[in-house]
Amino acid sequence: MNPEHRRIAAKYLADKWRWKPLEYVFWLAALAAVWLLPSHHLILNEIMITGLFAMSLDLILGYAGIASLGHAAFFGLGAYTAGIFAIRVTGDPLLGLALAGFASAGLGFVTSFLVLRGVDLARLMVTLGVALVLGEIANQLTWLTGGADGLQGVTIAPILGKFEFDIFGRTAYVYSLIVSFLLFLIARRLVISPFGLSLRTIRDNPLRASAIGTPVDRRLIAIYTVAAAYAGIAGALLAQTTQFVSLDVIALHRSADVLLMLVIGGTGYLYGGFVGALIFKGLQDVISSWTPQYWTFWIGLILVILVLIGRDRMNLAVATGLARLRGKPAPRPRTIVGDR
């Protein structure tokens, strides 16, 4: 064996999991915002939570190729679980977070069997259907969920008994940032592992994945369950930091919005969800300041253009631009974590 080939191969694989400069920039910027943008903590908190939610969708769409139009089912279940738990049992946020994660993971596991078969359209409709059913349940169980009025009177105890939630959203943002970062670290490990690699083979070609000995169904069930847990925790964060849960958390437009954000930010590199959430909420903020309530027009337009140009080509252009910025020749299309 040629040792040179071995060295190249080892380096290539090691490069895949090394932290890139932009990744440090991203998380340091998010941290710096705690001190630098004190008046924006409420919106930053929302962006962070939405970004985490979109990242959970990236795990199934970007890595495993499962398109979902009902991912808010898990977000909503997590939010309601955390809210109801806080009202009826205890206001401890971490316990609520864990419980919400488990509840959504459970739902994810059960419904994963529905998305195993079928093509894109069937999956889109089934996931949409699950979210609709769940939304209908939340709407009807008024005694538990508050129905259309929403869940009132959620009070959350200080985190670890020390850090109280303030009206400026500072604690909330730091809390969401830390939780999101920890979950991101786990997800990052997961997508560069052999498990993560095998998900990408399933996304690219399930027939061959099975022909090299990959238990396709099990892998899909596993990642769908994990993604559901992530979405549930994101929902719980929203319930805890806003101390309110309404039917909005599970509505169709939330599933659609999160899909849009992820697509705008780019799939298959974990940061797409956060970037998309930032762009989406930022645009919403800017555009609605000059055309209030019509801002969806522009989001729609962006989406139409994005699809017409081609999502892959768009991502490639951005990656090339970034490489050029750093003064390096633009190499092959490669993204930050893993590969597309």
Binding site: D120, I299, G300, I302, L303, V307
Partner: peptide, 23 residues
Amino acid sequence: RPHLDQVLFTIGLIFMSIAAVDY
């Protein structure tokens, strides 16, 4: 194109039309 692209594209059209008619 894949169904997902078609779905995204047509959702974009819905958004645009809703806002336009509203306007």
